[in-house]
């Protein structure tokens, strides 16, 4: 077995309960347990997170820049996808 710096893992932190997880960066680790610990030491030792996810970088499936148009361009001709398009009768509570 040749020397390595261990596989790369992506780290996601949840800053506070109920909030979305955010990508914080990466760490190297040989397995999930040490990845979790390393992630905590590198990205959460100042109390910046209440929760952590670590994912092997190789497991991430990402969109490609060339996807930008077909995947993400909203084409502003679909107002029915936005709440403002719908009129509710006065006095009726809409959640």
């Amino acid at each position: 077995m040749s020397d390595s710096q261990w596989p790369l893992w992506e780290v996601f932190t949840q800053p506070n309960k109920g909030e979305p997880f955010e990508h914080a960066g990466s760490v190297h680790a040989p397995d999930g347990e040490l990845a979790l610990q390393n992630a905590r030491d590198v990205y959460a030792r100042r109390g910046e997170a209440v929760n952590l996810w670590v994912v092997p970088s190789a497991a991430i499936v990402a969109s490609a820049p060339s996807d930008a148009g077909p995947f993400f361009d909203p084409g502003n001709d679909k107002p029915y996808r936005h709440p403002q398009f719908y009129i509710a009768p006065r006095g009726v509570r809409i959640f």
Partner: peptide
């Protein structure tokens, strides 16, 4: 540190 890194990698493989 080489043997330490190797140990952790070996353990991970075994797991």
């Amino acid at each position: 540190g080489a043997w330490v890194r190797a140990a952790a990698s070996a353990y991970a493989e075994k797991q």
